[in-house]
Structures are given as structure tokens and as C-alpha cells.
Design a protein around this nucleic acid. Structure first.
Length: 110
DNA sequence: GCAATGACGCTCT
DNA sequence: CAGAGCGCCATTG
């Protein structure tokens, strides 16, 4: 049943998926989009997370791009903070400052 | 309703 | 592996 779901509802769907990301794991925008039911809408995922208010219960910090890099936000140096936060959760990084997707990539099926 | 923007993804070089 | 260009689609002005 479908249902005329408003555009904002799509955002909620993305938030739900991000909330399902366990600590110590990370997911890519494309993955979140696919799990949320919006394959190919990776951009909208980033757009939705951008609209997230500060203090939300959505760990949007665990969402990164397909390359395992932290997308540069409007706040300069934020990616440095983000990296430390993820490290505190148990996420491993490589010498290039990228997340080890082979080790910490979240598996939506599991 | 049209044009521009955007926390991206993929492919080629 | 790294960098640049093109494409995708929804939201905003």
C-alpha cells in the first residue's frame, strides 16, 4: 500500500536506517539509500542528513561516502572530529584517514 | 513551473 | 591509488 507518502517521509526512512547502524560500524550513503528503499538516491541521503538537527538520535556520523572517506561538511576540520568520534566507537581507519570498509562496513542484512 | 544546488556514485584518465 | 567529469534525483529559491 502505497500511499501517498510525503517527501519528508522519505527522510524519516533514511533516519531509521541510519539508526540501525551498530556502534563500531559504518555505512555508505549508497548503502543507506538502498536499504531505505531509495536505490540510487545516495545524494538525497546526504541531503537528508544535512537537514538533521544537532542533537538528534541519528548517528549520521557513521554514514560516509562509498570511498570510506568522511564528506567535508560546512564546518572546516569537522572531518577530523568525525574521525575521532568513529575511532572512539571502535571504527578502524587507515593511514590515509579513510575508514577500513573491509573491516567496519556495516552489513544491513546482518 | 523553471533553474540551481547538493554530507554522492560510477567511470575514465 | 588519486583526481576530474558526468549522471541521478529530490529539495529549495
Amino acid at each position: 500500500m502505497v500511499a501517498t507518502r510525503e517527501p519528508s517521509d522519505n527522510y524519516s526512512r533514511i533516519y531509521e536506517v541510519v539508526r540501525r547502524i551498530p556502534v563500531g560500524w559504518v555505512a555508505t550513503y549508497g548503502q543507506v539509500a538502498a536499504v531505505a528503499g531509495l536505490p540510487g538516491h545516495a545524494r538525497q541521503v546526504g541531503y537528508a542528513l544535512h537537514a538533521l538537527p544537532d542533537g538528534s538520535d541519528v548517528p549520521w556520523q557513521r554514514v560516509i561516502n562509498a570511498r570510506g572517506e568522511i564528506s567535508p561538511r560546512a564546518t572546516p576540520g569537522w572531518e577530523g572530529v568525525q574521525r575521532q568520534v568513529l575511532e572512539g566507537e571502535g571504527v578502524t581507519f587507515d593511514a590515509r584517514g579513510r575508514v577500513d570498509l573491509v573491516r567496519c562496513l556495516w552489513d544491513p542484512d546482518g
